[in-house]
Design a protein around this nucleic acid. Sequence first.
DNA 1: GTCTATACACCGATAGAC
DNA 2: GTCTATCGGTGTATAGAC
Lengths: 198, 198
Amino acid sequence: MTRIPAPERRTALIDAALRVVSHRGIAHATTRAIVAEAGMSLASFHYAFDSRDELIDELITTVVEREQQAVVPDHVAGDSLAEILEAGLVRYFEHLRADPEHEQAMLELTQYALRSPERHPLAAKQYARYAELAERSLAYAADRAGAQWRIPVAQVARVLVAFTDGLTLTWLVDRDDDAALAVARAAADALSRLADEA
Amino acid sequence: MTRIPAPERRTALIDAALRVVSHRGIAHATTRAIVAEAGMSLASFHYAFDSRDELIDELITTVVEREQQAVVPDHVAGDSLAEILEAGLVRYFEHLRADPEHEQAMLELTQYALRSPERHPLAAKQYARYAELAERSLAYAADRAGAQWRIPVAQVARVLVAFTDGLTLTWLVDRDDDAALAVARAAADALSRLADEA
DNA sequence: GTCTATACACCGATAGAC
DNA sequence: GTCTATCGGTGTATAGAC
């Protein structure tokens, strides 16, 4: 019907694909389901993308670039490093509770990427991005608490990413809020001990 | 050809399905791929199982029941609780490195189960089983170190499961052994602080 | 450029010969 | 009970009218 520029169509399809993956899982993210979600015809899909694989790759790249979620907020209450880190993890947990499907989609996209050698680097980039955001938060938190990381902050960031992933996956399974908060507290404590406080 | 009792055929198909999921991912675990792996004809499948869904459910149930991996070994070197826990996590990590595809398969099965309401309880059971094994290990570790958990050991177990999951997922992505060991150390430290040592 | 209609591969599941 | 052959459905991708 209406003529839509190709780049615009691509982003519309990527957004639709993310909604389908979030709501129904990657197994149901077929080209038909995606164009239906986007309100387009099937042929439009292959006008904008060469293949479904190309769209999935673009989807992963896009969500990774879009990722802005920092684990430590800009303004925090609390004085000790452990308190600041715990507040950050609790903040992440609230974000997870607000939109569980999004984090579930990210996990599915990661595992999907891990299954093909060509796509594995996309998963690696995704986690490098997570680590980068974590590193920024950790540097800020230490600064805020007047503390110094004893080991390179990049290594601490890698640990934080692992803890966050574990928190996410276990909560998605059992939806136990109290247990998730216990994980957040323990993780904050462990991380804080990797720094010297002033 | 040869007549095989139905129960035997079922277990053979389940074993084959696990191999397919491990090697190629759940998306490729079609009935055809599974019977090929098992060396059977397609019709044999539907003689042993009513549907593919039934097999997948059985597969998840089976692998969960089969799960014996305890995070803390029977005989440990080391005296402090933190050391015992770290040794256990390192032992788990060695297990992960020895057969990454199996843990990847378990993660995929979990996420697959999370996507359908009827199967969600299977994922919950899987994690309840993990927690049970973790609890046993933690009780043993505290006993071994002459320590006492300050909070119910079930809660500590839930934290350990989350840390283990995070360790697994991040290592599967970046295969960074040093970073994984750092996670193990931090997690052991955090967990040990949830107990009073004698 | 955008649509409908369709090609072709592969899926789960079954019919029917043996 | 076990096989080969096939059904109906859905997947990705494309042809051809407009």
